[in-house]
């Protein structure tokens, strides 16, 4: 584990260098490009595409995670308990929907561009967060809930001071899963003309230019790995001081 910070730093540096000065890496990719074809994607700057890609993901995941958390809180309150079986069933059932299908079905509704991608990312992002938040909130030990009530916490105090902090690591884990899926789906979003790193891969596939495919693929992969790693650190920090008390 001691190597982790160095690997992390190296990955960040490499990605930053590639995004900012891709031409430095052109000699490495040259053998993959057909003769006479550009080696580095030239229809947009890689830095812009990376930002677009991340921006789409963030713009979709933040409201998605907030809504999913709110829903999970709602159905774990006594007044919403009625919807708990439905929420659980939907959370499980919804995840059998392939992200590609969600993306493709959004196109007829809102047309091409960033919107169908945003909608697909938003909808698909709900489920892992919902499922994990439900697991986290309903996994708070009975004795702890009883103690909170017995100490005289109001339902709101119990939620904010006990339930949410205890469920937080699992919730962040849910956000992590959602975000990684979103990065992947956003790449596919380029098939419906969403700006992002996917368009580099698509352009490469269409033009049979493997140099494009590889640079787009590597950058997307690096983006996913970096975000996955960062959110993993966040989840770890949240539970650093205690044993995980909630069952998954």
């Amino acid at each position: 584990m001691k190597a982790a910070p160095f690997v992390r730093l190296a990955l960040w540096t490499l990605v930053a260098a590639f995004v900012l000065w891709p031409d430095l890496f052109a000699p490495l990719l040259r053998p993959l490009a057909p003769d006479g074809m550009p080696v580095i994607y030239d229809r947009a700057r890689l830095a812009d595409l990376t930002l677009w890609h991340l921006g789409l993901v963030v713009a979709a995941i933040i409201p998605s995670a907030l809504l999913a958390t709110a829903l999970a809180i709602l159905v774990t309150r006594p007044s919403g308990a009625e919807f708990l079986p439905l929420a659980r069933a939907l959370g499980g059932f919804g995840q059998t929907f392939p992200p590609v299908a969600v993306l493709a079905l959004a196109v007829p509704v809102v047309g091409f561009g960033a919107w169908p991608t945003l909608i697909a990312l938003f909808l698909y992002g709900l489920l892992p967060v919902l499922e994990n938040a439900l697991a986290g909130l309903s996994g708070v030990p009975r004795a702890v809930m009883l103690a909170a009530d017995g100490m005289g916490m109001t339902p709101r105090q119990r939620l904010w001071r006990v339930e949410l902090p205890l469920a937080a690591p699992l919730m962040v884990e849910g956000v992590r899963i959602s975000t990684v899926i979103a990065i992947s789906t956003a790449a596919i979003g380029s098939t419906v003309a969403a700006p992002g790193l996917g368009e580099v891969i698509i352009a490469g596939l269409n033009a049979n230019n493997l140099a494009f495919v590889v640079q787009g693929g590597l950058l997307t992969a690096a983006l996913a790995l970096i975000v996955h790693d960062a959110l993993g650190l966040a989840a770890h920090a949240l539970k650093a001081h205690r044993r995980v008390t909630v069952a998954g």
């Binding site: 596939l205 590597l218 997307t220 996913a224 790995l225």
Partner: peptide, 17 residues
């Protein structure tokens, strides 16, 4: 886990090489 994290389109594409 790293492999699993790589977006599908990226892995599908890069495996062509």
């Amino acid at each position: 886990t790293m492999l699993q994290t790589i977006p599908s389109m990226a892995l599908f594409g890069m495996l062509i090489v």
